[in-house]
């Protein structure tokens, strides 16, 4: 039987530990394999930190996280009510540059794309919704 979980957090990097623990519990409940779970947690951190940094420039805000099973996939939705912003619109960094020419940053969205099986963004009811999908098997 499919179960859904959700929890609300303050959009503050200091909450990263709690956010990670919550999502880890959801992933364990779904029995997501260790390697997939690692990718999920990195993608989660990148998305969460991005919201904390940019979504609410003038005020405190919230991040609401939903998880559910979708057949053989684990789905995580990360939502905020901040400025409309699609993190997936950012370009990937050039990962072939050497140490002196490598720019600091730009890797977050790259990890969100590379470490999940599917990712999509939608704007709904004044919320940004980032949907991460990880298949149970590779």
């Amino acid at each position: 039987m499919s179960e859904k979980f959700h929890k609300i957090f303050a959009a503050n990097v200091d909450k990263l530990v709690e956010v990670t623990e919550f999502v880890e519990e959801c992933a364990d409940h779904f029995k997501l394999e260790a390697k997939k779970k690692f990718g999920l947690l990195v993608a989660l951190e990148e998305a969460f930190v991005n919201i904390c940094s940019y979504a609410y420039p003038d005020r405190d805000g919230l991040v609401e996280i939903f998880s559910e099973e979708d057949g053989d996939s684990f789905v995580l939705e990360i939502t905020d009510s901040g400025h409309p912003f699609n993190v997936l619109s950012l370009p990937d960094p050039d990962v072939s540059l050497d140490i002196q020419n490598r720019e600091i940053g730009g890797l977050g969205v790259y990890f969100i794309r590379r470490l999940t099986d599917n990712v999509s963004y939608r704007r709904e009811n004044d919320h940004n919704i980032l949907r991460l999908v990880l298949n149970r098997t590779s």
Partner: peptide, 14 residues
């Protein structure tokens, strides 16, 4: 565990 924030710190220090 390491994320882009960890890599960024490594790169900055390097």
């Amino acid at each position: 565990y390491i994320s882009s924030a960890g890599l960024r710190a490594l790169l900055a220090s390097a």
